[in-house]
Design a protein around this nucleic acid. Structure first.
Length: 358
DNA sequence: GATTCATTCTTGCTAAGCTA
DNA sequence: TAGCTTAGCAAGAATGAATC
């Protein structure tokens, strides 16, 4: 543990995590949030070579809150981590195969102060310390890349990749249920593999291919009735240029990262311009159709729908519709103002004619 | 081999909530 | 506030097993 953590202390860009923790499954019913997964990695990195010792560790709140400028979410994340349990193969006192289930954190102490010196104190549980002490294989995670991920499942896939990418056989194979347990996917969500692929594997691959020093691919194996039963994930190391590009991207601001990944930054500007032009063509009578709850459905024109489909399907349509509503609201205010101004001018003109005054 | 039926997948969409 | 992720729903398509 000491030898492994020396790496992270030396360069400051790496987080060293015991292989057992990466290969452990999350306890039944637990699916840590994105913030919780990042915070856990930071706590392990902070404890470094002393993590296995009994006793507390301390980290400054400013190190935990990331780019968010307040500490208001730290307590919620700590509460969530207190409920996180991990499971791994073990043996019972009788020497028989068993499953070990244990919590990670024994307790946390969150200072009420909000200044720059405010800290969080915590202690790992005895089972967690035993794993850290006895582990002889580790994954070296890139701190910037880890903090840049936006999908909670991408983080766990990235940790798996860091553990496997340098090996002779950098693959993980297992059933769909085993993969769901490894990633901490709630058992009652995404019952169809198509949803699991669309919301877990595809976004995870997109982020890993952009931010990690390796790429991710997977193969699906079908069983009876065409149902997908097994998955094999392969993590392939990138060459030097691609690795440097990934490191640069991880250091850049997150704004525009998805656009850079998908190459859609320019088309979004054009779409917004088209919406603004379409909105200015509204008549006064159009504003009378404005629904009380501002729902966009009645304003989803075929042109808007076509633009959204071109840019990326349902989500793009929704974003454009939201933008369309904002433009329409501005247009409505302008139209109402113009109508009032016209009425006022007409009334004043009538008064002048009637009473002979200006 | 054709048909029926049940299951699963694909696609499109919406809503809630989180983050910068 | 805008952009995004996560999650769920619905309709239709695709697939495989059972039956005739």
């Amino acid at each position: 543990m000491k030898a492994a953590s020396t790496i992270s202390v030396r360069d400051g860009h790496a987080i060293v995590k015991a292989g057992e923790f990466i290969e452990a499954r999350f306890g039944a019913g637990t699916s840590p949030s994105l913030a919780a997964r990042k915070t856990l990695a930071l706590l392990i990195a902070k404890a470094a070579g002393e993590a296995w010792r009994p006793g507390s560790h301390i980290i400054a709140k400013r190190e935990l809150r990331g780019t968010h400028n307040a500490n208001d979410r730290i307590q919620d994340t700590l509460d969530e981590l207190m409920d996180v349990k991990f499971q791994m193969p073990s043996t019972s006192a009788q020497g028989r195969a068993a499953t070990l289930t244990a919590a990670l954190l024994a307790w946390t102490l969150n200072e009420h102060a909000e200044d720059g010196r405010a800290t969080v104190e915590w202690e790992f549980t005895a089972p967690a310390r035993a794993i850290l002490q006895g582990s002889d294989y580790y994954a070296r995670l890139n701190r910037a890349a880890l903090l840049a991920f936006r999908s909670k499942y991408a983080i766990t896939l990235y940790e798996m990749g860091c553990l496997l990418a340098g090996r002779r056989n950098p693959t993980w194979s297992g059933t769909v249920d085993e993969l769901r347990e490894r990633l901490g996917t709630p058992s009652n969500s995404m019952p169809n593999f198509s949803d699991f692929r669309r919301l877990v594997l595809t976004p995870g691959k997109a982020e890993i291919d952009q931010l990690a020093a390796f790429t991710m691919d997977w193969l699906e194996k079908r069983g009876a009735r065409g149902k997908i039963t097994h998955v094999t994930i392969t993590f392939t190391p990138k060459d030097d240029d691609a690795t440097n590009a990934a490191a640069d991207e991880a250091e850049r601001h997150s704004t525009g990262r998805r656009s850079r990944r998908e190459g859609t930054a320019d088309t979004m500007v054009d779409a917004a311009s088209l919406i603004a032009v379409a909105a200015t063509r509204m008549s006064v009578s159009d504003t009378l159709r404005w629904p009380a709850d501002d729902r966009v459905d009645e304003f989803k024109t075929p042109e808007l729908y076509a633009i959204g489909q071109t840019l990326g399907g349902g989500h793009a349509v929704q974003r454009l519709a939201d933008q369309y509503v904002r433009v329409l609201k501005d247009r409505r205010r302008q139209l109402v103002g113009d109508a009032l101004k016209a009425d006022w001018t007409k009334w004043v003109t009538g008064c002048s004619a009637k009473w002979g005054r200006t």
